[in-house]
Design a protein around this nucleic acid. Structure first.
Length: 716
DNA sequence: CTAGGGTTAG
């Protein structure tokens, strides 16, 4: 009989589908073993493993047994704890108590796990109470460990700690649960303290530290722990690697990234056969600036999920490849993988970064209707960014006012950013009022507002904002940039940094570069320095921006032709952006910069971000004017917005005589129009008008680059 | 027969 039972147990153990189980069940009945709690419990556990619903089959199987033992009760309770309703687990527990069957430790682990899964701390506390009332579980490792985990997951870390402190015996699992609790709260000091005290550290404990640092945006420490882990001879599995890959993605360190991929492949967790590793690597490669490599990995993946697609779409978006992002989205919806909120963040930012306003509107309007994804405040922030950058500030403001949830800082911040681009202090004021309330210490908002006032020449307001900043004692977030050295080591530079061993050479190289650029017409953009100092000091400060230091170091330390990759913690400033453009041309180098918004690929004097944030010089020649309105036959893909500083009119096409020269400001209409209205006395029909100055030019896709120095249009 | 570590986000 014993032998038969263990044979049937073994059969159940290997069942992989429902019919299989039913056949074994039939054998159990045929052999008259249908009252065996032991066998039926195994049967129900197997059904749970296969995700079969507890109602009706497992439940009926349970009801056949006249005297279920605690293990059989628990198997059903546990089954419900993996499924809903959780209530059913509790009802069963009550029935079990009523018939006088004593719970065992397994019962409590099942119930507590259910509480953790549903984040029901109240219920968890009651079950905790039960273990005390009934007694005898105080020294049970399993119950204690599950209880810690339950409290940690429900956000009651202190309760978890109390359970931990009161346990007579603890093991590495108790410690790890608590370490994870502190890590999730962001307290890596406490987590690290516990880890140091932990007598026996296993792979999971180490991994908790590595991922803890990675999730708290401390990639360097994550990688450092991974190194220590390897030195300690601890094995690595896929979960460890995911944390390490995420850290590499944050750092943007190419050499380290390639090494990690190698480690993953060597340990049998290659991207082709492992979706999670594959998706993480896609994200890592795009964030390291290699979006093509990311796509190669993506393309070779045998299985993909919503993470893989979203990471790739977001990757394309960051690199300004909007068409690729949208196309991949189309491919995705043909599969049975449903897009989620993150997928749409990717699609919307892709449209936003290249000015595809109409596309963006379309996706925003259909995301809920066609794909069942309800827009969150983050999606509204994307839309505000998209409309705002596109020049539709009023519409953007209207969207913020009518959105169904309270706009958060990101939403107003997007609007304020757009006001900077389109020099609109009126809308900016509205956004700023809300931002100062939501993020009273967000220094960036004050700087932005002050810059917007400055471009409108509203100096009193500039002074007012600066005074506000002084009163609040706000300090500028230190800018920092890093670049990889020859061996993959990371060199980090802070704004104004002179501590690097090669500091003198770096400064010299930078000076040489800027001198050359000035011969090509570069002028330092003093408005990038938000302090009340002399112009000379502003120039000096501009020269110490961290991304310029990183660039100079990159030029010095790599050989000609090598791509220079820089990561910056804040958004790249406009002045640095134009220096990068110039440097890419003069030095004949490709420069790739990741800032906190997106990637910039500089080559031949141009940036892939297509000018949303850079002014460019232009020359326009227009023939044929009526009613002071020039119809510019702009190429569909090129849109202009901004102010013309000067224009010049030569009367008649033939004589070429200059009839008028003016410094009048000519305002261009929003970029969706191709109508240019000339203020004041406009030229007549036969005149040749030459406009020169600086304007912001936006270019909807990387596939249609614009000439950034000279734009020539001949009209009508 | 129970318990701990997991990838995407302007």
């Amino acid at each position: 009989m014993q032998l038969l039972e263990s044979q049937l147990i073994s059969l159940l153990h290997h069942c992989t589908n429902l019919n299989h189980i039913k056949r074994v069940h039939a054998q159990i009945i045929r052999h008259g073993l249908h009252q065996s709690s032991f066998l039926l419990a195994k049967l129900i556990r197997t059904l749970t493993k296969l995700n079969a619903p507890m109602d009706p089959y497992p439940r009926l199987a349970f009801q056949q047994v006249k005297q279920p033992n605690p293990f059989l009760w628990t198997s059903l309770i546990r089954g419900y704890s993996f499924q809903r309703p959780l209530n059913e687990s509790i009802l069963l527990y009550n029935s079990m108590r009523r018939v006088g069957t004593g719970p065992v430790s397994f019962t409590f682990t099942a119930l507590l796990k259910a509480c953790a899964a549903t984040l029901d701390a109240d219920l968890g506390r009651q079950i905790h109470g039960q273990t005390i009332t009934i007694g005898g579980f105080a020294s049970d490792l399993y119950v204690g460990n599950t209880m810690i985990d339950m409290y940690v997951k429900c956000g009651f870390l202190d309760c978890g700690r109390k359970v931990f402190d009161e346990m007579p015996d603890r093991d590495v699992i108790s410690w790890t649960s608590l370490i994870v609790g502190y890590a999730r709260r962001g307290d890596m000091d406490l987590a690290g303290g516990l880890f140091d005290e932990l007598p026996l550290k296993d792979m999971v404990a180490w991994t908790a530290m590595v991922t803890g640092f990675a999730q708290n945006a401390r990639p360097r420490e994550a990688l450092c722990f991974f190194d220590r882990m390897q030195d300690a001879g601890i094995e690595t599995d896929e979960v460890t690697l995911i944390g390490v890959i995420s850290a590499c993605a944050q750092l943007g360190a190419t050499k380290y990234a390639n090494w990690v991929r190698h480690v993953a492949e060597k340990s049998g967790y290659g991207p082709t056969n492992n979706v999670v590793i594959g998706s993480a690597l896609v994200d890592m490669y795009s964030k390291c600036g290699s979006v093509d490599e990311a796509f190669k990995v993506f393309d070779n993946m045998r299985e993909r999920n919503v993470f893989s697609y979203s990471s790739m779409i977001v990757g394309f978006a960051m690199h300004g490849r909007a068409n690729a992002a949208v196309q991949l989205f189309h491919e995705m919806v043909k599969t049975d993988i449903r897009p989620n909120g993150v997928t749409f963040i990717g699609v919307l930012t892709a449209c936003s970064h290249v000015g595809m306003v109409e596309h963006g509107r379309h996706w925003f309007a259909t995301m809920e209707k066609s794909y069942g994804v309800t827009p969150t405040a983050d999606h509204y922030a994307c839309m505000v960014d998209l409309l705002g950058r596109g020049g539709c500030l009023e519409e953007a403001l209207e969207l913020v006012r009518t959105m169904p949830m309270d706009p958060h800082g990101g939403v107003w911040g997007a609007l304020l950013g757009a006001c900077r681009i389109h020099a609109n202090p009126d809308v900016a004021e509205i956004a700023a009022v809300h931002l100062f309330e939501l993020e009273p210490n967000g220094i960036g908002n004050y700087i932005l507002l002050s810059n917007i006032y400055a471009s409108a020449r509203r100096w009193d307001d500039v002074a007012r904002v600066r005074k506000l900043m002084r009163e609040k004692g706000l300090k500028k977030n230190p800018g920092s940039s890093w670049v990889e050295g020859k061996k993959g080591e990371i060199h980090e530079f802070f704004a104004g940094d002179v501590t690097h061993v090669k500091s003198r050479e770096i400064r010299q190289a930078l000076e040489d570069l800027v001198n050359k650029l000035q011969l090509h017409g570069y002028k330092p953009n003093l408005s990038c320095v938000p302090y009340d100092v002399s112009d000379e000091d502003k120039k000096r400060i501009l020269m110490t921006h961290s991304e310029k230091l990183a660039l100079a170091f990159g030029l010095l330390s790599t050989s000609a032709g090598c791509t220079i990759r820089i990561v910056k913690n804040l958004r790249i400033c406009e002045d640095c952006h134009s220096v990068m453009c110039g440097a890419s041309q003069i030095a004949g180098r490709e420069i790739v910069i990741r800032d906190n918004m997106r990637f910039h690929h500089f080559s031949d004097g141009k940036c892939s971000c297509a000018v949303y944030n850079s002014w460019c010089k232009f020359l326009l020649r227009i023939y044929g004017m009526t009613n002071h309105i020039a119809i510019l036959p702009l190429r569909e893909s090129v849109l202009l917005s901004g102010k013309f500083e000067r224009y010049e009119v030569r009367g008649g096409r033939k004589d070429g005589r200059t009839s008028q020269e003016s410094d009048a400001l000519l305002n261009l209409p929003p970029p969706s129009a191709n109508v240019l209205s000339l203020a004041r006395k406009g030229p007549s029909l036969d005149d040749l008008v030459t406009l020169s100055g600086e304007a912001k030019v936006q270019c909807p896709s990387q596939e249609s680059p614009i000439p950034s120095i000279l734009l020539q249009f001949s009209g009508l």
